[in-house]
């Protein structure tokens, strides 16, 4: 016997107990279905994530028409093409990095984020220092991520809202001519689609 049968179970943290309280009351009132909750958690843990966004970006690198359309209305197109659908009725538009402009995304209010294509945001995205500093001094914040943007390149900072969110299309790295969509996907990271990093260098 690994345990003494009389030893009690240590309660979890206070917030964990608060969540259990809410959930059990809501289930009893019929406002929440436990199976739907489990499915939501599973979906966000395993099925929705930056791999969705990487697919969209790789397609955009290969298909000019696709790229033009997601710069106008990314949410409708990706629903149509890939079946990726937003849950909060939010719109996503894609913003493209070019030789003249670098784009980076923030939500200064809370942490609105294009869940459909990137999953849930990383902790730093939700932190007050990032939310404030990327607006005040984007170049130095990007440098701290190891991303040096030349001084002659403009940096545009996009502030997300609950209704409009942004996906950055990083510049396609040199040396990837003739690459397939599947190969290109391997170069596209979550951070490159938030705009704090560049796509991976195929040589590295």
């Amino acid at each position: 016997m690994p345990h003494d049968g009389n030893e009690s179970t240590k309660p979890p943290s206070d917030p964990a107990l608060r969540v259990k309280a809410l959930e059990s009351l809501l289930v009893e009132k019929g406002l929440v279905d436990p199976e739907t909750l489990d499915l939501l958690v599973d979906t966000y843990e395993h099925k929705i994530g930056p791999q969705n966004g990487a697919r969209v970006v790789a397609r955009a690198w290969l298909d000019q028409d696709f790229k033009s359309s997601i710069k106008i209305d990314c949410s409708s197109i990706i629903k149509q093409v890939f079946g990726f659908e937003g849950r909060q009725g939010e719109h996503i538009i894609a913003v493209e990095n070019t030789s003249k402009t670098h784009n980076v995304v923030v939500c200064t209010l809370c942490s609105c984020y294009p869940w459909t294509v990137l999953g849930l945001p990383p902790v730093w995205y939700k932190s007050a220092p990032y939310r404030a500093r990327i607006v005040e001094d984007p170049r130095s914040v990007l440098a701290e991520f190891g991303t040096d943007i030349p001084l002659d390149k403009n940096i545009l900072v996009w502030d997300s809202t609950s209704e409009l969110r942004y996906l950055v299309i990083p510049e396609r790295p040199r040396g990837t001519e003739g690459w397939s969509e599947e190969q290109l996907i391997t170069l596209i990271t979550r951070n490159s689609m938030i705009g704090v990093e560049l796509a991976k260098d195929p040589a590295s």
């Binding site: 964990a16 909750l37 966000y44």
Partner: peptide, 28 residues
């Protein structure tokens, strides 16, 4: 804090109650 959550390598939710609280809000 750069490594989590929802990185390719890391967990999406740092603690189980984060996941439950997340799902409750989306569901409601």
């Amino acid at each position: 804090l750069n490594k989590q959550p929802c990185d390719d390598e890391g967990p999406v939710f740092a603690e189980p109650w984060h996941a439950q609280a997340f799902a409750l809000a989306v569901h409601l």
